[in-house]
Amino acid sequence: MKAVGSMVLALGLLGAATLPSLASAAQVVAGVTFDDRCEVAGQSLVLNGAGLRTKLILKVYAVALYLPGRDRNPGAVLAQPGPKSIHITMLRDVRGRDLSEALVKGMVANLSPRELVALQSRLDDLHATLMSAGDAKKGDVIQLDYLPGSGAHIVLGGQPLGKDIPGEDFYQGLLKIWIGEKVSDKDLKADLLGLSSR
């Protein structure tokens, strides 16, 4: 009886030890490893999902979404308070203008006319900030962080780009590029929301 009890205890401890790794594992996408956690504004964020952005048959970039808590519902993700982060690793060289225009176009496609009017000047700021970085090279890492009270904080290779773009509404618009209703890549949306069975 004592031996059985010891075995049950050992199995319980083993299960407890392996549970965190199952719940929060790093992900590898096209050779890019995204850690299970990152820190933004002094808060630890968890990896919600990661995937690959392709255009035709070309691999453009690997991307990951980090949140205060995991969620599969896009509306709930957008409504989560606190810092958030999108990590992009370029898998090929892309002209700065092409990257900027693709992101702005993806954002505009998911905005209502009223939202577009409210965000237009900040969209212009996003375009100018991305253009100031020049062309994106294979291996470049771009972070789009949301800092509460400050706004969208854009980082390239560990160096901040331009000034933070204010407004939680603006960052929600950024997230909609990948998890909005009119995304250009539904498989990638599913990956970032942790819904993919691939």
Rank of each mutant, 00 (worst) to 15 (best):
L9Y: 09
A10M: 14
A10S: 14
A10Y: 09
G12T: 06
G12R: 08
L14P: 03
G15L: 12
A16S: 06
A16V: 11
A17D: 03
A17H: 06
T18W: 14
L19H: 05
L19T: 07
S24G: 03
V29G: 01
V29Y: 03
A30C: 05
G31V: 07
V32E: 08
T33V: 12
F34W: 04
R37T: 14
C38W: 00
C38Y: 01
C38R: 12
V40S: 04
A41L: 01
L47Y: 04
N48W: 07
G49Y: 06
G51C: 06
L52K: 03
R53F: 12
K55F: 15
V60W: 09
A62Y: 01
L65M: 12
Y66A: 01
L67K: 03
D71P: 02
P74E: 10
G75P: 10
V77R: 07
L78W: 10
A79R: 13
Q80Y: 04
P81A: 08
G82T: 00
K84V: 01
H87T: 10
H87C: 05
I88F: 06
T89Q: 12
M90Q: 04
R95F: 08
R95Q: 14
R95I: 03
D98C: 00
L99H: 04
S100P: 01
E101P: 02
A102G: 06
K105H: 12
N110Y: 11
L111A: 13
S112V: 10
R114K: 13
R114W: 12
V117F: 13
A118G: 09
L119T: 03
R122K: 15
R122S: 14
R122D: 14
D124Q: 15
D124L: 15
D124V: 13
D125V: 15
L126D: 03
L126Y: 08
L126G: 05
A128C: 10
A128G: 09
M131R: 15
S132Y: 10
G134R: 10
K137P: 00
K138H: 11
D140S: 03
D140H: 09
D140Y: 03
I142Q: 02
D145E: 12
Y146A: 02
L147H: 14
P148C: 10
P148V: 09
G149D: 08
G149Q: 10
S150D: 13
H153L: 04
H153N: 07
I154G: 00
I154Q: 03
L156H: 13
G158F: 09
P160Q: 08
K163Y: 11
D164R: 14
P166G: 07
D169L: 11
F170H: 08
F170G: 04
L174C: 07
K176W: 02
I177F: 14
W178Q: 01
E181F: 08
V183H: 05
S184G: 13
D185K: 07
K186N: 09
K189T: 02
L192T: 01
G194I: 01
L195E: 07
S197I: 07
